[in-house]
Design a protein around this nucleic acid. Structure first.
Lengths: 237, 237
DNA sequence: GAAGCTTTTTGATTTGCGTCAATTATTTCG
DNA sequence: CGAAATAATTGACGCAAATCAAAAAGCTTC
């Protein structure tokens, strides 16, 4: 059964950079073919290698992008609302390079690839929005690569914590927001190593209780992390 | 002094996917403001952190994209003709995330960012070409991340050699095409470790003499490398 | 609230890979 | 061409991080 996108959600989707510049007619075209779906946690949404059919928009909950090779699995990113995913595959009409699963109960809008393509040609503003969104994602990916190749796992963790703190409005304490094993995988390390890394950060004023992180003095941690806006600019997708 | 783009080079640039669909008027607009420049080897073209002003098109020679952090440097990619670079920064009008330098004597076309932007709005075909190019680059980057996170350095080398062999038309022997230390950096390893890795590949029929690589039996090496078109699809940029 | 699961932590051990240092090969350039 | 510089290789060593194993702590679920 197809479930239409509600007006309320429409509003929310519209607030995304990808859709904000769009004129009403075009936006309606996109939403007409789109449908919303609720998913329980740990549901596979897409599998790498499959052909892409829909642009996904995460409205609530959280989604993990991950990849497999030769028996190994790695977390590529953890997405939170409101963000789009697999835009590149949608545009290329190519096979997915990553798989996706829900982590929490999630609400997701699915926009048919053909509609995205059609509106792209119809509305120059949308075209510009798509290319901007893609450029942002591209740059985020470059940052990921730099992060992996230039930093040790301890430095990656330190920078992640500083970024998370910033996202939490520079709060003195904040929630980790995801399981530690997934954080570990996303940072390119094992859960065991992450656990030890947290202890190594104690002298820098980092305390952790469950999923609650407390950073006593951010500038202390920054001394170790050496954050750079050419690597750490917070960009979800 | 501004050097115009020759007709011959014009032809070559046009053959790029980015420009192929473009109508003549728009292409002329782009080329009118563009200029060509010759660079000796080892010349810094752009520096990460600087604001982007030009879309770069490599016509001949080769260019290294690299990044620095806290005293470390890593090779992000080595480009060969004909390819564009820093398209994402151009579109976002943002600061470069990577630096670039010539490796060989190179000929490069510089297209002002404003012109790219203007033609993007003017010509839907160009808009589509830009978004396609960007999507390709994005996907290449995702592959890089998967390569780094899912494979050991030996596996990365093995897959690189198989990809290079393919690029050389499945020739039994081919040139490495870049210094070993840059290859090492681009694969995320040290020169010393690369040297050892080459020796480890001997039992798999890999021989190396200077920059000449010989692969006796590709299928043998594939047994180790386990190449996947979701990671190894050859895409330069 | 206890039983059974999963996740996290901790410790012991191994290993892949980086670092340091020295030698050999290769390239550059006067 | 030969000297100097740069790259590549090799060996010894150390460290970061993975693996293995087991205990502890958190979650479910009935």
């Amino acid at each position: 059964m197809v479930i239409r996108v509600s007006d309320f959600e429409s509003q929310e989707i519209r607030s995304l950079t990808l859709f904000s510049g769009l004129d009403d007619a075009c936006f309606s075209t996109l939403m007409r073919g789109a449908y919303v779906q609720n998913f329980p946690p740990m549901i596979d949404l897409i599998t790498e290698g499959d052909k892409s059919d829909f642009l996904h928009v995460l409205i609530s909950g959280s989604v993990e992008l991950f990849a497999n090779w030769s028996g190994h699995e790695t977390t590529m990113a953890v997405l939170r609302p409101t963000s789009t995913f697999i835009l590149a595959a949608t545009i290329r009409r190519a096979r997915y390079l990553m798989s996706a699963r829900t982590l929490e109960k999630s609400r997701i809008v699915l926009v048919p690839s053909e509609d995205v393509s059609a509106v792209f040609d119809l509305d120059p503003d949308f075209a510009r929005a798509v290319v901007t969104e893609l450029a942002v994602c591209y740059r985020a990916n470059v940052m990921t690569t730099k992060n992996l190749k230039l930093r040790s796992s301890l430095e990656r963790l330190a920078n992640h914590l500083l970024a998370a703190r910033k996202l939490a409005g520079d709060a003195q304490s904040f929630d980790l927001g995801l399981e530690k094993r997934r954080l570990a995988s996303s940072l390119g390390m094992t859960p065991e190593n992450l656990s030890r890394a947290f202890r190594q950060l104690k002298p820098y004023g980092v305390a952790i209780d469950g999923s609650r992180v407390m950073i006593a003095d951010a500038s202390d941690l920054e001394g170790l992390a050496k954050p750079s806006d050419l690597i750490d600019e917070s960009c979800v997708n």
